[in-house]
Nucleic acid binder design. Structure first.
Lengths: 272, 272
DNA sequence: TAGAACGTATCGCATAATGATACGAACGAA
DNA sequence: TTCGTTCGTATCATTATGCGATACGTTCTA
């Protein structure tokens, strides 16, 4: 009997602290992309009433998580928010051990290499190594992409149970990013099934025109996926056939090594 | 009259929501470096009683911010925490505009270049460009170092009021990292005063043996610092004198450009 | 096998969060 | 200028909500 679960009238369990959720809702208001939020903006985005928005913004400001411009009276996120990401990065065992392996993979192939984790219906990039001679500023760690239409996502799903895949696809918004995005549920499941066979999967221009991606899952001792490794390249320089021939073997080697390392550890940190 | 301020009996104002603070305290428990925390660990670190720790951990788990290992029953941070850092990165106007300037600075000097912001008594790195041929994995964004003994910190403080500097030093724990760390308050203030004159400052092995750092502040239209740019190198390859001669001019040029850009914007996001 | 430590569940109570309301300042329109 | 609106701030009675003492069951270990 798991902590009364959803058994409560309000659907969240007796132990659920509503105030905490509301406060985090206020912080989440800044995930919309708007940098400077007025109290009214917060009220509108979070659907909290005037007083609640006031109280939580006040509290977050007092704690240093929100900065308040004295002139415009608008709130912005403080750099203190980065503390959470540092703590996460340092706490995730997979990130710690994967680093050198990904660097090796990058040096052997000269392609962009990423490590990702599944959170809800999305894949979140947690390590990013840009392609040779690409931008000096590394791509953003923490970026989200939908699992259903990315190689990493489908690779991770290929080592999850059918039920889990089903519920994730249920919750996913199956909307196309490009003309080549595969949104049909049957086709998605077919791709996942194929990945289950060969151990990796390829996505062709499903998220970004001109981008090819190959990915494979890292699994724990139980065979359940705990993350994914992908490599991205352009349609100018590569074809899926060449990726299968030249990249798939070394990619599989990398995820196999990481999967074996996981076997010894008792606890795999921070899954979805 | 600012929101009743500290005027309340409990010292935090009428509007302060204690439950939110407690919930965030639970998340902060993971900043200690321990990755896997049991309920008892959380209870001990946060000084919350058994029931409170239970409720907040339950809530954070229900919201997806904490992952709970079914076997060990220990909590870990979820990758969802990275959402905050992405939101912050995208919301901070200085980070957006500074990127290309820092890349230029890096390409002209071939040295490691960082952008930092002051939060409380620390400096937080928000952009990091590693030195040529350094590690492929970028240094961690969000890392904190004390303001009092770093070039960036003293550079930022050099464009703050004396009162502000005083209160920040009051709150700082003036402990040495290396034999050369300057912990004496008079000496620190002298360095800051010097930086106020020449526009930059140098720290010699104060944080890390063998590391030299030069830094200069970015200011807004009011002349108040909103961030700092620094460059780091080794004592093997450089001397302070050469840094003054070869690096200071181009560094000052960079921060001047960024400072002017700030002039036009109304609101500078996310100060300390 | 006893005992301690831990996670989980329950429940009555009082505090602490609530939200309606009122106030004042800033802004724009007439 | 003088309205009228909007926004941020402040107050307060009400009670829902978080609180914490307590009890239960399981897992270690001694």
């Amino acid at each position: 009997m798991p902590l009364r679960g959803e058994a409560d009238a309000d659907g969240r369990g007796q132990l659920f602290v509503g105030s905490l959720e509301k406060g985090l809702r206020v912080l989440s208001a800044f995930l919309t992309g708007e940098a400077h939020l007025s109290l009214s903006d917060i009220r509108e985005i979070t659907k909290l009433d005037k007083s609640a928005a006031q109280r939580f913004a006040y509290t977050l400001h007092a704690l240093g998580y929100l900065h308040k411009d004295p002139n415009t009276r608008r709130y912005t996120l403080s750099a203190k928010m980065l503390d959470w990401s540092v703590a996460y990065m340092q706490s995730d065992h997979l990130i710690q051990v994967a680093g050198p392996h990904l660097v090796n993979l990058h040096e052997e192939t000269r392609q962009a290499v990423n490590l990702s984790r599944l959170v809800d219906t999305d894949v979140i990039y947690v390590i990013r190594i840009p392609a040779r001679r690409a931008r000096l500023l590394s791509p953003i760690v923490g970026e989200r992409v939908p699992a259903f239409c990315t190689a990493s996502g489908r690779a991770i799903l290929s080592r999850r149970s059918d039920e889990e895949v089903a519920t994730i696809l249920d919750r996913s918004h199956l909307a196309p990013f490009t003309p080549r995005t595969i949104c049909d549920r049957r086709s998605i499941l077919a791709r996942i099934a194929a990945a289950r066979q060969v151990g990796y999967t390829i996505a062709e221009e499903e998220c970004l025109p001109g981008e090819l991606t190959i990915a494979a899952p890292i699994v724990n001792a139980d065979g359940r996926s705990i993350g994914g490794v992908n490599m991205s390249m352009t349609t100018r320089d590569w074809t899926p056939e060449r990726m299968r021939a030249e990249l798939a073997p070394v990619l599989l080697q990398t995820v196999a090594a990481l999967s074996n390392l996981q076997g010894s550890r008792v606890a795999a940190p921070a899954l979805s």
